[in-house]
Design a binder for these strands. Structure first.
Lengths: 109, 109
DNA sequence: TTCGGTACTTACTTTTTAGTAAAAATTGTT
DNA sequence: AACAATTTTTACTAAAAAGTAAGTACCGAA
């Protein structure tokens, strides 16, 4: 039987794997912003995602990084500058975001 | 500012709403199965989704029903027969599933 | 009158996720 | 020496999600 692997997690179906990778209260919103902007700084992400706490934002960024969807670039300046961007694998998830956004727009009031 | 509403939950962006609707350990897998099969019985879903417990399956089915993505048809027979199927709104999320599945296949081993 | 088959339901526990708020690290500027 | 700006980190608490396992309801057939 075919298997799918992300990090050290193994799944029996691609939907299960994908579901696991994007599961998180703010992950899709993070990916959505990064899909529109080439790269974004931590502080900028924080401002753009209303209500996200610093803890959750950094936690989700770490997980997305570990799963290979985004990369973190640290510029050794003072004050520090950190930029996040989609990786190649991350860019390949953009069609999902686009379709999802379109679906969500059905619920506009 | 535009708003998006699902049930009694209001969101500022369509991605946030969509994210909320599909957030759940097995929801995308349920939607995936229903997208391929026209309709499916409870017991069949349970067999097809490995490891899901009866509690979680029914809970997710209820939430998807409340959010208007699926509908539940009870046939008053003995033993009882219950069929689940995508609604029109549910069918409109199929492109998301398709894109997600394609993305997940990148991780085949 | 007990059993089979289907679809749940309930009570309880454990695990995971999220929220809050304060602190840390860095170093050039005042 | 204190401050500013930015990106975390930490400790603690609270809430939500998930797991486990047993129980319920229906009714016709054996």
């Amino acid at each position: 039987m075919e298997k799918y692997k992300l990090g050290d997690k193994v799944f029996d179906c691609p939907v299960g794997l994908a579901s696991n990778a994007i599961n998180g209260k703010w992950k899709l919103q993070i990916l959505n912003l990064l899909s529109q902007e080439e790269c974004m700084r931590y502080g900028n992400l924080k401002r753009r995602i209303e209500d996200v706490s610093e803890k959750m934002l950094i936690q989700h960024l770490r997980e997305l990084e570990q799963d290979g969807l985004i990369e973190r670039k640290l510029y050794p300046e003072v004050p520090p500058r950190v930029e996040y961007a989609l990786t190649e694998v991350g860019r390949q998830i953009i069609p999902v975001i686009v379709a999802l956004k379109q679906w969500g727009q059905l619920f506009r009031i």
